[in-house]
Design a protein around this nucleic acid. Structure first.
Length: 456
RNA sequence: GUGGUUUUAGCUCAGUUGGUUAGAGCGCCUGAUUGUGGUUCAGGAGGUCGUGGGUUCGAGCCCCAUAUUCCACCCCA
């Protein structure tokens, strides 16, 4: 076989031991909080039937789904006449029946429907697994990345939303982040705004444009709105909304005025207010991190109520988390009337943020504690017994697998940061006096096997 | 999908208007030290300059294509 140059697929990464330690620290921290709030873990397969995924993320999303080519001679199953009528879009379902999961929410919805007889509502689950997107990589954006999702299905209570805010606050704080904003919006507020302008069909265009305020400024937003079909009278009505500012209660007060003639808008206001009220009852200080932001446009294709997005203010990075409520989460799989709400942490972006801020703890796990040297074949039996004794005591230990120069073995211990080395050769075996070297101080101590084992 | 950018030793990077044998630091190996790491000193190995074409007497450097990195847009964690 021809030798090929080793390389990674675009947008993917290897994780070395040191990186895995840090990644696991993030997963463990988040997982601990999830459990504390009563969520149970599930996993679903890396790939789903393509049908399960398509049509759930909008046209843009569908393009970013990684499809898996069918096995076998799939081309033979398409008649030549039919083939000529196909384009890239219509050909795909004929040659790819499976696809890598794009997020964890849709597979979860499928899971709920398939296991509806086994689960009790409300069902609170968390899930930490990789997802794949055929996007072009850039800062904080990978083609394979981990999401940490918590969702609850079958509960309309806004208490869930409030608890998600607390979960964000607690997990991110535990990870060492200090300055982050949990943005809160509600689809019904946006619908209300589109309502009073009288252009409910343009809801998404309107929100997407307003969402760009930070990037393109007020004039840019107005320009985009006009290009989407809004007129000057609409802009006049939108103006107080786009430039909404002040505290959360200020914003809600202004919105109350603006939306007084919209039923759905009023409902949205009530919901936002209720979420904030619950947070204040559970843990009022968390409100400091919450910002009502009606420009938040995330996931408009599917969210129906609350919308969340989390950003760190300490480094420039896209959102490190997001989520929201779907009134009919499982409807697309035939189970009607089941509401779901959930949030997600972007573990890979959080990793990048913690790296940049130097927030990883010194060392999060303990490696090998003792290395038994190997420079003498005749000492092997003795060494293996000792190794076994260490391991029986639960001490992470290694026997250097081949006879080699002591220099090399000590370098190995040094590099792996193994704190203790036991010198073992013919001399030690015959005398029964072992030498323990402390790699930090360089000190050596002579002792019997029993004494040695008692130290650990 | 659109635009820009990057690629030279294991790693991080120099490399002049196109001109002899492509360099440095770190790492690695050997020795000083036949059973003592991390420090020090001496020496050594390691490169089809991302890949494929082209221009030229001559290409790491110029041109074309392609892959890849990073960045912005779209969108998103």
């Amino acid at each position: 076989m021809a030798q090929i140059k080793p390389s990674l697929a675009k947008g993917t990464r290897d994780f070395s031991p040191l990186e895995m330690e840090k990644r696991n620290y993030i997963f463990d921290t988040i997982k601990t909080v999830f459990k504390k709030y009563g969520y149970q873990e599930i996993q679903t397969p890396s790939f789903e039937n393509l049908q399960t995924l398509t049509g759930k993320y909008g046209d843009e999303g569908d393009k970013l789904i990684f499809k898996i080519l069918n096995s076998g001679d799939f081309i033979a199953k398409i008649s030549p006449e039919k083939y000529t009528t196909l384009n890239a879009n219509s050909l795909t379902p004929l040659i790819a029946e499976k696809a890598l999961r794009y997020d964890l929410t849709v597979p979860f919805a499928r899971y709920v429907v398939m296991h509806q007889n086994d689960i009790t509502l409300p069902f609170k689950r968390f899930q930490i697994q990789p997802v794949w997107r055929a996007d072009r990589p850039q800062k904080g954006r990978y083609r394979e990345f981990y999401q940490c999702d918590v969702d609850v299905v079958g509960s309309e209570s806004l208490l869930n939303e409030a608890e998600f805010i607390l979960i964000y606050k607690e997990a991110l704080t535990n990870l060492g982040l200090r300055d982050f904003t949990i943005k809160l919006n509600n689809r019904k507020l946006l619908a209300g705004i589109a309502d009073i302008i009288g252009k409910p069909d343009l809801l998404i265009d309107m929100t997407v444009a307003i969402d760009k305020l930070d990037k393109i400024g007020l004039d840019g937003v107005k320009k985009e709105l006009i290009s989407k079909g809004f007129d000057d009278a609409d802009l006049a009505k939108l103006d107080p909304i786009i430039s909404l500012s002040g505290s959360n209660s200020d914003k809600l007060a202004t919105l109350k005025q603006v939306l007084k003639d919209s039923e759905v808008g009023q409902k949205g206001l009530e919901e936002v207010d209720m979420v904030l009220t619950y947070v204040s009852k559970l843990e009022a200080p968390a409100l400091d991190n919450v910002e009502v932001d009606i420009t938040l446009a995330r996931g408009l294709n599917y969210y129906t109520g609350s919308i969340f997005e989390v950003k760190t203010n300490e480094v420039a990075m896209g959102s490190i988390g997001g989520g929201g409520r779907y009134d009919d989460l499982t409807g697309m799989f035939g189970l009607k009337g089941l509401t779901g709400v959930g949030i997600s942490f972007g573990a890979d972006r959080i990793y990048d943020v913690l790296s940049e801020l130097n927030l990883f703890p010194e060392s999060t796990t303990k490696g090998t504690q003792v290395l038994l040297t190997n420079f003498d074949q005749s000492a092997e039996d003795f060494a293996l017994q000792l190794l076994h004794s260490f391991r029986r005591k639960g001490i992470a230990s290694e026997f250097y697998p081949t006879t080699a120069k002591l220099k090399k073995q000590l370098s190995y211990a040094d590099q792996k940061k193994i704190p203790y080395v036991v010198m073992l050769g013919t001399e030690e075996v015959s005398s029964g006096v072992l030498t323990l070297k402390n790699m930090t101080t360089g000190e050596q101590q002579k002792m019997s096997k029993e004494e040695l084992l008692n130290i650990f």
